[in-house]
């Protein structure tokens, strides 16, 4: 049985979050058919943009829902500027002890591990870097890439920051470990991976004056929650088609059928401890 976290970017878009049955249906449709699972956590926030840090009000509502459904809670944050750090300083005190926080830069990890030792840190996928090139999806021609969590020195860094969990994507060329990892709990994002992130946001510039568009740290109206940039068809013929799209600052690719099938094997081998299902960040 695999443990599952369901992730949302914004409380207003949580769907029928108050219904456990709804959440379980959503999870089941993202997992290999018939896969047994245990829904254990609700997450709020976003890994890719600090402008999507949840408000105090949203955090309070999400924690209340998690309590009601007897699920754990996790806050998700992107890599942060100092301005972003100021924002999370307002919400971290609201988190119940033993909540998890998905961090995506080393400094934020260091700050939280010192200032809030009761919170459990997860190294997000912006920290667990590996090649993710959706345009060379022909398995036999791919370079083989392992997750960084298999490297002892990466684990040393995590241990130094009191981080015992890490999260990763599948890439066409990923070769996951064939056994359960010691000393680290691994979460795998289902459905899609990310390939490249920008510090400026194309769609987030939509309502900005021309002179303010695409500047570092520019304002936005969270247009990423309303629009998607699609690449209509895969540009380069490959043996497996990975649909690419852009949400906000980030290019994503959907897992191919082959990659989805491999998830069942990964779960069976216990190479991963948890899967993450993003429900409002789009199943496109």
């Amino acid at each position: 049985m695999i443990k599952v976290a369901v992730a949302f970017t914004e409380f207003a878009r949580l769907g029928d979050l108050t219904s456990l049955e709804y959440l379980q249906q959503q999870v089941a449709s993202n997992l290999p058919q018939g896969q047994a699972f245990e829904l254990e956590q609700i997450r709020l926030g976003n890994e890719f943009c600090e402008r999507l840090i949840p408000s105090v009000g949203q955090i309070g509502k999400a924690i209340a829902v998690a309590d009601k459904l007897q699920l754990g809670f996790a806050l998700v944050i992107s890599n942060l500027t100092d301005r972003g750090l100021e924002k999370i300083e307002r919400i971290l005190p609201l988190l119940p002890d033993d909540s998890e926080v998905v961090v995506n830069d080393w400094g934020t990890a260091s700050y939280i591990s010192t200032a809030y030792p009761a919170l459990k840190l997860i190294a997000g996928r912006l920290l667990c870097k590996h090649l993710k090139e959706p345009r060379i999806a022909t398995p036999e021609e791919d370079p083989v890439v392992k997750w960084p969590v298999e490297n002892e020195y990466f684990l040393t860094v995590l241990a130094d920051l009191n981080i015992q969990s890490a999260e990763v994507d599948l890439a066409p060329h990923t070769r996951p470990p064939d056994h359960k990892m010691e000393h680290i709990s691994i979460g795998l994002h289902l459905g899609r991976g990310y390939s490249a992130r920008s510090q400026v946001c194309t769609i987030g510039s939509l309502h900005q004056f021309d002179e303010d568009k695409f500047s570092p740290g520019h304002q936005c109206l969270r247009e990423c929650l309303d629009y998607i940039v699609r690449v209509p068809q895969l540009i380069y013929p490959q043996t497996e088609q990975l649909q690419m799209y852009q949400r906000g600052t980030t290019w994503f690719y959907n897992y191919s059928d082959r990659m989805k099938q491999s998830i069942a094997t990964v779960i069976e081998r216990q190479s991963i401890d948890r899967v993450i299902v993003s429900l409002d960040w789009g199943d496109h």
Partner: peptide, 20 residues
């Protein structure tokens, strides 16, 4: 335009699409 440290794609040959 991307953040170099958070780009995990490759600068592919032109026939495969070039840099993302």
């Amino acid at each position: 335009p991307y953040e170099e440290g958070l780009c995990h794609s490759l600068h592919l040959p032109t026939e495969l699409g070039g840099p993302l």
